[in-house]
């Protein structure tokens, strides 16, 4: 590992969004049905919007995050894990905004993938009107560094 060049220093990079994400009834229904269920009748949105809303409304695209990590998105970032803590359910018709940041980028040597960078970033979803976050999510991506392969 000592001879590997260090991973880019990106921890702390802001992922705060500038646009709002609104969960519309139409899209929630389409999303639910695409997964084989009907939308809830209590006004709550499908909980997978934790991922959808934060990805769409964060301050960088997936390609943009990869670029920050000096990684070409065409080289195939892979999802490693995703965790979420909800403080409240997500609601249809509500608008939300995103705050967040990159937590770490750690270079590792994998027997399966060779050299890779493990990216961890945290996003929070807030009501557009303000107030505490309704959820916090940590996502881990694996960025295979083909150019550093032995």
């Amino acid at each position: 590992m000592d001879e590997l060049p260090p991973a880019p220093v990106v921890a702390g990079t802001s992922l705060d969004g500038t646009k709002l994400f609104t969960i519309t009834a139409e899209e929630n229904a389409a999303l639910c049905r695409s997964t084989g269920v009907e939308p809830a009748i209590d006004g709550s949105a499908h909980p997978i919007y934790y991922y959808v809303a934060t990805q769409v409304a964060m301050g960088k695209s997936v390609a943009g995050i990869c670029e920050t990590c000096e990684f070409d998105v065409d080289d195939g970032p892979m999802m490693g894990s995703s965790g979420v803590r909800f403080a409240a359910p997500l609601m249809v018709g509500e608008s939300y905004k995103v705050t967040g940041e990159i937590l770490s980028l750690v270079r590792k040597l994998s027997r399966k993938l060779g050299v890779m960078d493990v990216l961890t970033y945290r996003l929070r979803l807030h009501p557009a009107a303000g107030g505490d976050a309704v959820l916090e999510t940590d996502n881990v991506w694996v960025l295979p560094r083909k150019e550093l392969a032995a």
Binding site: P47, M79, G80, S82, G83, R85, F86
Partner: peptide, 10 residues
């Protein structure tokens, strides 16, 4: 019920 927390590995 509602989900309070969830961790998934790919």
């Amino acid at each position: 019920a509602r989900i309070e927390a969830m961790d998934s590995r790919f």
